[in-house]
C-alpha cells in the first residue's frame, strides 16, 4: 500500500512538474499577452493541483500538514482565476487588444472598452 501511494504521488509530482514547465514554456512561445495568459492558467490549475495532491499523498496522514496543503490548494484555485480575470480585464480596459486568428468568426470588440492605446501601456515600469 505504501509503495503504491509512493508511486502514485511520484507520478503526480513529475506530471505536475512537467505541466508547470510547459506552462512556463508557453508564456514564451505564445505570440501575445492574452494567449500567454492561457499558458499561465495551465500551470496555475492543473500543475499546482497535481503537485499539491502528490505532496498530500506523502504526508503520512499528519492532519495539520494535510490541512495546510488543502488550504493552499483551495486558495490557489480561488485566487488564480480571479487574478487572471482581473489582469485580463485591466489589460483590455488599458487598451491592449488580442491578436485574433480568424477575424471573421469573432465578434467585434465593443467600443465601450475605450480606444486601443497600445503605445501608452508599454514600458511603464
Amino acid at each position: 500500500m505504501a509503495i503504491f501511494l509512493d508511486v502514485v504521488s511520484w507520478a503526480l509530482l513529475i506530471l505536475g512538474g512537467f505541466m508547470c514547465f510547459s506552462g512556463a514554456v508557453g508564456i514564451h512561445r505564445f505570440p501575445d499577452f492574452f494567449s500567454r495568459m492561457h499558458a499561465a492558467g495551465v500551470t496555475d490549475t492543473l500543475g499546482s493541483s497535481l503537485i499539491l495532491i502528490g505532496l498530500m499523498l506523502q504526508t503520512g496522514w499528519q492532519a495539520t500538514v494535510l490541512v495546510k496543503l488543502a488550504l493552499i490548494f483551495l486558495f490557489i484555485l480561488l485566487t488564480s482565476p480571479t487574478a487572471s480575470h482581473a489582469l485580463a480585464k485591466a489589460a483590455l480596459h488599458g487598451g491592449l487588444r488580442p491578436k485574433l486568428g480568424k477575424p471573421e468568426v469573432s465578434d467585434e470588440i465593443p467600443e465601450k472598452f475605450g480606444k486601443p492605446r497600445s503605445e501608452s501601456v508599454n514600458n511603464q515600469l
Binding site: 510547459s22 494567449s35 492561457h38 495551465v42 490549475t45 485574433l100 486568428g101 468568426v105 465578434d107
Partner: peptide, 25 residues
C-alpha cells in the same frame, strides 16, 4: 479542467501556429 489542460499543453508544444484566438460575447 483536466481535459482542457491537455489541449492547451498540446498547443503549447505544437507552437503558436496551432492557435487562432477568438473573442466572443
Amino acid at each position: 479542467i483536466v481535459q482542457s489542460n491537455i489541449q492547451v499543453i498540446k498547443r503549447i508544444w505544437l507552437g503558436p501556429k496551432s492557435i487562432s484566438p477568438v473573442v466572443m460575447q
